[in-house]
């Protein structure tokens, strides 16, 4: 089994070698007063088409072509190489016209979203794995709702059996909303454990005023607060892993369309498509 390090090194070496050849060819064209922009443009367009085709491969998993993992490796290194080809194509200057600027912005947005996505796909799984429980994204709303019901049941039962409303009032004032509502967009963009720490601290403070049966329920609530926070953490990070891909793929189609149009226009302004 090839280690990740050796795979990374060999893929990077191959990418650099191909890029070096392309730069050499472009320089040679330039030195002979030729025009490399059509050549680099076509290579860039081919690279973008290849990158976009990964989504097609994912949609047809029964076909006997290379594994998705090999495709992703090719996708990553072709994408990284495409940035250099893009630089070569625009001669390391940002375009000035509206159409070309739009195309450049679309490419850069797609590229940056890919880089950010790569970082997230490599870093978020390990953060999720540190949570004690593994949760399937689609089940999170159901698990949250079950947890909310259990918490409410536990508190109501304690109130009924002890006749004391101390814990019940605290629950309805401070905790019910936490269990019932979903977290806001701020938490989804940057999950943190501030609410969890605040609630656990308040619960600890409250426990000194509770009777032994209420304290037993309080212990259950401690665990439920933690579990709910873990579920929210999973929801936020798994959502992020899905959302970036949605954005990345969403940018690809306009990029493809505008890039094709750019190519056609370039040929027209150069004296015709044929």
């Amino acid at each position: 089994m090839k280690s990740f390090v050796s795979r990374r090194l060999s893929s990077a070496a191959l990418t650099i070698a191909v890029l070096a050849l392309l730069v050499f060819w472009a320089q040679r064209q330039k030195s002979t007063l030729g025009d490399a922009s059509f050549g680099t443009g076509y290579v860039l367009l081919a690279a973008i088409f290849f990158l976009a085709s990964y989504n097609v491969r994912k949609k047809l998993p029964t076909l006997p072509w290379a594994s998705s993992s090999d495709w992703l490796q090719a996708h990553i290194y072709v994408a990284l190489g495409s940035a250099a080809i893009f630089g070569l194509h625009v001669e390391w200057r940002l375009p000035t016209g509206i159409f070309d600027s739009t195309l450049a912005m679309l490419y850069l947005a797609t590229f940056v979203s890919g880089i950010v996505g790569l970082f997230w796909t490599r870093s978020i799984p390990a953060r999720l794995a540190r949570v004690s429980e593994e949760v399937i994204y689609e089940r999170i709303p159901m698990l949250r709702s079950q947890l909310c019901e259990r918490a409410q049941e536990a508190v109501l039962e304690t109130v009924r059996s002890t006749g004391s409303a101390t814990l019940g009032e605290f629950y309805s004032r401070q905790m019910h909303g936490y269990f019932e509502k979903t977290r806001g967009l701020g938490y989804f963009l940057r999950p943190n454990n501030r609410v969890r720490r605040r609630l656990l601290a308040e619960l600890t403070e409250m426990s000194r005023y509770l009777s032994p049966p209420e304290q037993a329920t309080c212990e259950q609530l401690f665990a439920m607060v933690r579990r709910r926070d873990d579920l929210d953490f999973h929801a936020a990070l798994q959502w992020r892993l899905k959302a970036w891909l949605f954005l990345h793929i969403g940018l690809t189609y306009p990029l493809l369309a505008v890039a094709c149009l750019h190519g056609a226009l370039a040929h027209l302004f150069d004296g015709g498509l044929l």
Partner: peptide, 18 residues
């Protein structure tokens, strides 16, 4: 390997398609 799994469910979709 949960340190690498992005929970994308491509595995599930491929299994269902098959």
């Amino acid at each position: 390997d949960l340190d690498r799994c992005t929970r994308c469910d491509d595995c599930i979709r491929a299994c269902a398609a098959t």
